[in-house]
Design a protein around this nucleic acid. Structure first.
Lengths: 187, 187
DNA sequence: AGCATAAATAATAA
DNA sequence: TTATTATTTATGCT
């Protein structure tokens, strides 16, 4: 467990929904240790984290629709402990740097953009219905195509080879999972 | 859904990857009670479960070699939540049958427990971000470490040697897969 | 606000 | 090593 049961005695700065926290408030260790444990105020009210979301996701904050990047999910507890653990060091690093800027008198936090690009996950491809249909047809004929066949299919459907390969992997997986489920499920 | 962390409701004790619940937790857990329709009775009122506790905790089962029966694996949470969910029916069946036998005064309950494949897959290790960073640093310097080097790295990072070895294998493989140098790569 | 599933990755097989 | 599976993560939708 990454977050030790910190003593609530050290008078941390509580962050409520009604106020906009400063960076130093955000950086308080108590706050950090509590992250991922309690529901928090909206991200939109928290400049540093909002910025973090922006940076993590590479997109602007949408006012109506809350962002769902890992950082924001961490903030909202909408995240698994394991993910939280992975994210925490990044968060700490970012926040400490943000605090530094803040101490240097940099008022406008939104101008603070930097940090590491952090290799981003491949954008989730969305297959066209036609492509899915074709893929399923291929799958039905052969659920385990060779590398060469995968290449050909990819070329035919005009998708990345790796994407097609993974599609077959996942397809086999779900098939196995669902069929297994039937075996186990007894009323 | 294996991630109870996402649920904001004040639900029963969730089973997460990061903690090992006690038997009583398991009994009161949403996991187990969900399948049964009614709330569970206390452990003390459930002979089979009590026995299960005894056997798994009191060391009646072989202590060195981990028991492989579904119940024991469930008890020790030597499975992921998702697996636990899959295993639940089996466990429930075991419990009811065990209770039946117990009522009949039958002592050796473990005889009918077997049947589960003993080929337990190694639990997926999750590297800390620090470890991954370190591994990547090593990898950048040398993607193909010798056995001796692997041993040293494993020792340094305090991971199992085999785990580190496999990490390097997979790292090379991933690199190869995602590499755009593939001859058959579609642009 | 969840779900379905694409992507990532540890483990295993060949 | 390469190929595939098993498991986990997280994102594009509605």
């Amino acid at each position: 467990t990454p977050a030790p049961a910190a003593k609530p005695s050290s008078a941390p700065v509580p962050i409520t929904c009604s106020e906009t926290p400063t960076v130093s408030q955000l950086v308080s260790s108590k706050h950090l240790s509590e992250l991922g444990k309690e529901p928090r105020s909206p991200v939109s009210q928290r400049p540093a984290l909002a910025l973090l979301c922006e940076q993590t996701q590479g997109g602007a904050l949408t006012p109506s629709l809350p962002p769902r990047c890992p950082a924001c999910r961490f903030e909202k507890l909408d995240i698994t402990p394991k993910s939280a653990q992975k994210l925490k060091p990044v968060l700490e690093k970012w926040l400490s740097e943000a605090e530094l800027r803040n101490q240097e008198g940099q008022q406008n936090l939104m101008e603070f953009v930097g940090g590491e690009p952090s290799k981003k996950r491949k954008r989730r491809t969305s297959f066209t219905p036609q492509a899915i249909e074709a893929l399923n047809a291929y799958f039905e004929k052969n659920a385990l195509p060779t590398g060469q066949e995968i290449t050909e299919i990819a070329k035919e459907l005009n998708y990345d080879r790796e994407v097609v390969r993974v599609w077959f992997c996942n397809r086999r997986q779900t098939l196995k999972n669902t069929s297994k489920l039937n075996v186990f499920q007894i009323p």
